[in-house]
Computed example of a mutant assay.
Amino acid sequence: MFDFITNLIDTMGAFGVGIVMFLENVFPPIPSELIMPLAGFNAAEGKLSLAAVFLWGTAGSVLGAYLWYEIGRRVGRERLQRFIGQYGVWLTLSQDDIRRAIDWFDRHDKAATFFGRMIPGVRTLISVPAGISGMGLVRFLIYTTAGSALWNVALIASGFLLQANYERVVDYLNPITNLIIGAIVIAYVYRVIRQIRERRHT
C-alpha cells in the first residue's frame, strides 16, 4: 500500500496527493496518516510545493467527503433503513446503529462534521448522516473544509519537520500499513460472522 502511494505521488506530484486523499475518503483503508506526512516530507526535500500539497490534499479530502454526502442525501433515511435491514450484516451495521448515528448527528451536526474529519475511521462515514439529515451543502462544505484543512496541516507539518528522520520511518511503514489493513479485514470478517449468528438466534 505504501509503495503504491509513494509511486503515485512521485509520478503525479501534488496532484497525486489530491488523488490519493480523494481515494482515502472513498476507501478508508488508505490512511491519510501516511499520505500527508509523506507529502510534507517531499515538500521539505524541495520535491513538491508546500502550498500545492496543502491545497490539493484538502481538495481531495473535501471532494471525497462530498461524494458520501451526496450519496446520503440521495438515498435518504427510509431507503437506508430498508437497505440496512436487508444487507446490513455485510456492512456490520444494524438498523438500530443507523438510527442512533443519525439521532446523534442531528444533535451535534456542526461539531460532528468538523471534528469527525480528524478522527480515523470516522472522517469518511460522517458525511453520510450529514446528507441524510439534510444538512445544508454550504454549511457542510464549510465545516468539512475547515476540519480537513486543520488535520492536513498537522499531518503535513509532521512530515515536514521530521525531514531526514522520516527516511528512517519509511522502511517500517509499508509492512505496518499491510498489517493494519489485514487487521481491518479480520475484524470485518469477525463482525459479519457474529451478526449472522445473532440474526439466526433472533
Rank of each mutant, 00 (worst) to 15 (best):
A14G: 07
S61A: 15
V138D: 10
L155I: 05
R123N: 14
G18T: 10
D171K: 14
F4H: 03
G116T: 03
R200H: 13
A149M: 12
G76A: 07
A130V: 10
T58R: 04
I196V: 15
R168Q: 11
K110I: 09
L23P: 02
Y87P: 03
R79N: 13
G182Q: 05
S127F: 04
A52V: 03
T144F: 07
V138T: 14
I184H: 03
Q95R: 15
P37M: 10
Q95D: 01
Y188P: 00
G18H: 06
H201M: 08
I9L: 08
N42V: 00
G134W: 13
E70H: 02
R123H: 13
L80P: 00
P120E: 10
L38W: 04
P29T: 10
F2T: 12
G40W: 13
Q81P: 00
V17Q: 07
M1A: 04
W90G: 07
I181L: 07
Y87E: 04
V89Q: 14
L63D: 06
Y143E: 01
M135P: 08
W151G: 02
S148L: 02
P175D: 13
S127R: 01
I102E: 15
P129D: 06
P120W: 12
G136K: 14
L161S: 15
F115E: 01
H201W: 01
T113I: 14
N165M: 05
F15Q: 06
D97V: 07
A187I: 00
R168P: 01
Y66G: 00
T92A: 15
D10P: 00
I35N: 05
T11S: 13
L125F: 15
Q86I: 05
F140Q: 12
V53D: 03
I186E: 02
A51M: 08
T144R: 06
I84R: 05
G40Y: 11
N174P: 08
G121R: 07
S94C: 09
L93K: 08
